[in-house]
């Protein structure tokens, strides 16, 4: 029993981090219909911000988090203006845009790799290797903090979307971009801001990831498939769905990892992705936001 609780707790903590990694992706898809395959590489960027903040100046990654958010959000604004603005205008999913984000992922990976090499890194504040003990169950502080901060950030995001006027505009745009535009929403601005928020979340996730996993630039390919499984399972564009999918899949992956070995725990996500695609052939993307 103790072992099972242990696994569930580890899974949930990790799931919290994955949820934050996935929710930015989900938000951007919802508003702009862009499947941003570059999202994980930008999370990697956030991880490097936190890593160097700690390594060079000894700043705690949790304090570097807002810095990473700002840096990544600013990057997002530039990317949006240079690359995505005209893509966003078509407001329709297109293969070309997916390929574009795929290419962007390579650019980011190549840039990070050139700057920082492919050496494995991990940020190591004291709590990253420390743990709480409750009876037999141990809870690594690093994962616990990361998971809790993640869920807090997602909670704040949900409140913003639900109650602010801008959040209202974002939700309207997600449901029917054309309609929102015709009712007076400046959808281009909504696109820009949502993109900046989404990538800002990637920065936040990156700072947390930096002390939970070891990372190196090309690792983002592994994350892409994991994050995609979360957002597909949760229903692309639905942040709540992404959070639930993250928590559930991470717990399952933790069980698989414990009983079959760590290699196979990542396979859980990919297999889950396939199963979802098979069970719902139209995919969870298949739901059309427009009225027929």
């Amino acid at each position: 029993m103790g072992e099972i609780i242990q696994i569930v707790i580890l899974g949930l903590a990790l799931g919290g981090v994955y949820a934050l990694m996935g929710s930015g992706l989900s938000l951007v898809f919802g508003v702009m219909r862009i499947v941003n395959l570059a999202h994980p590489s930008l999370i990697m960027g956030g991880a490097y911000v936190a890593y160097w903040g700690f390594k060079l100046y000894g700043v705690d990654p949790l304090i570097m988090l807002p810095v990473a958010v700002v840096i990544l959000a600013a990057t997002a604004v530039i990317l949006y203006k240079l690359v995505f603005e005209r893509e966003a205008r078509s407001a329709k999913y297109s293969e070309m845009t997916v390929l574009l984000t795929f290419a962007l992922a390579m650019v980011v990976e190549g840039a990070l790799g050139t700057a920082f090499t492919n050496t494995q890194r991990v940020t190591s504040p004291d709590y990253a290797t420390d743990a709480f003990f409750i009876g037999d169950v141990f809870i690594p502080k690093g994962q616990l903090y990361a998971g809790m901060v993640s869920l807090a950030i997602i909670g704040a995001l949900a409140l913003f979307l639900k109650y602010s006027r801008f959040g209202y505009a974002i939700r309207a745009t997600t449901q029917n971009r054309e309609a929102a535009e015709l009712l007076g929403v400046n959808v281009n601005l909504v696109g820009l801001v949502s993109f900046a928020i989404g990538i800002g979340l990637a920065g936040a996730a990156g700072s947390l990831v930096s002390f939970v996993f070891s990372f190196y630039p090309s690792k983002h390919w592994e994350w892409i498939a994991i994050l995609m499984s979360l957002v597909v399972l949760g229903g692309m564009g639905s942040i709540l769905g992404t959070v639930l999918a993250s928590l559930i899949l991470s717990v399952i992956a933790a069980f698989v990892g414990t009983y079959f070995g760590a290699t196979w725990s990542t396979l859980t996500f990919f297999v889950a992705l396939f199963v979802v695609l098979m069970v719902r052939p139209q995919g969870l993307f298949g739901e059309k936001p427009e009225l027929a």
């Binding site: 309207a172 449901q175 029917n176 054309e178 309609a179 929102a180 535009e181 015709l182 009712l183 007076g184 929403v185 400046n186 959808v187 281009n188 936001p289 427009e290 009225l291």
Partner: peptide, 24 residues
């Protein structure tokens, strides 16, 4: 002008798809 700006001038457009929010 963008559609939201044209709207503010006083021209409303209802497209073929009717521009509703299905989940609202």
């Amino acid at each position: 002008l963008r559609p939201d700006q044209v709207l503010r001038k006083g021209i409303c457009f209802v497209p073929q798809e009717r521009a509703l929010f299905p989940k609202m």
